[in-house]
């Protein structure tokens, strides 16, 4: 049985239909990547699936309708990562992580906290205040907060944003290993190459409600992605012999001069 599935899903914000007629399923052990231009509703899709936005159509969580879950029951099934939390009230890194470690949500306590902090390279930041950290460090704290949750589903909204290259690579590896351990991960990404390296399945959001769901092999191809982003892509040979998609930068310095 799929962890999370949608049938004829429609998400609106006000009068604006962000997506309609989406069918997809998230299986245990798989990573579903959502791609699309800015403003097409990728974050809203995640909020809707996390039960934070109203939806039309059917969303099933472990075979049961999403709306039948209470807020606390949903929190036992889904971990959501989105915008960085405010630093207004002065929480330390440890305090923030402890909020994700409600005893009903996590087992293993301090050991698990230590392991997650080590994985995300934030062990030395634990006593610091969130407001003192760089944006990238705060993002890593948020990712650690997701890792701490004992839930079968992760919904991640641009988890690699603000991260340097080393930490981007580390996080992609963590996602893979977590999926291999049985989690279902639905992740919004902007980097096509990252999508290429971690996706099992793909949802493309074109805007105007148009969406498609399919396998990585069918959808992560130059023609489809060029249509999605409205820009030309070049397929190149990477150092490891695998294909690499890069945007074709046109209208360069010579023309400008």
């Amino acid at each position: 049985m799929s962890l999370l599935s949608a049938h004829r899903l429609e998400v609106k914000r006000g009068e604006n239909t962000l997506l309609s007629g989406l069918d997809f399923s998230l299986q245990p052990g798989r990573i579903l990547v959502v791609l699309g231009p800015n403003g097409v509703g990728k974050s809203s899709l995640l909020l809707a699936l996390a039960g934070m936005l109203p939806v039309e159509g059917e969303v099933l969580l472990s075979g049961k309708a999403l709306e039948q879950y209470s807020r606390s029951d949903l929190a036992r099934e889904i971990a959501w990562q989105g915008s960085l939390p405010p630093t207004e009230f002065g929480l330390s890194v440890d305090q923030r992580l402890n909020l994700a470690m409600d005893s009903s949500l996590v087992a293993g306590g301090e050991d698990k906290l230590r392991r997650c902090c080590k994985s995300l390279d934030i062990a030395s930041l634990r006593t610091r205040m969130l407001g003192e950290l760089s944006t990238g460090e705060r993002q890593r704290v948020e990712l650690a907060a997701v890792m701490l949750r004992d839930v079968p589903i992760w919904l991640l909204d641009e988890p690699t944003a603000h991260l340097d290259l080393r930490h981007q690579v580390a996080w992609l590896a963590i996602m893979r290993s977590q999926a291999d351990a049985g989690r279902g991960i639905l992740v919004v990404l902007h980097d096509v190459q990252q999508a290429f390296s971690v996706a099992d399945d793909v949802v493309l959001m074109h805007g105007g409600g148009r969406v498609s769901f399919g396998s990585k092999e069918d959808l992560l191809v130059p023609e489809v992605l060029e249509d999605l982003y409205g820009t030309r892509l070049l397929q190149m040979q990477g150092g490891d012999g695998q294909g690499v998609l890069v945007p074709a930068y046109e209208g360069g310095g010579d023309e400008a001069a």
Binding site: A50, R71, S72, A75, L91, L99, D102, S104, L105
Partner: peptide, 20 residues
């Protein structure tokens, strides 16, 4: 108090942690 603590992270994070 536990729900109030979660609210320090903002409405959406609190909701995601199970707060109504």
């Amino acid at each position: 108090s536990r729900s109030l603590d979660a609210m320090l992270l903002g409405e959406m994070h609190a909701t995601a942690l199970g707060v109504d």
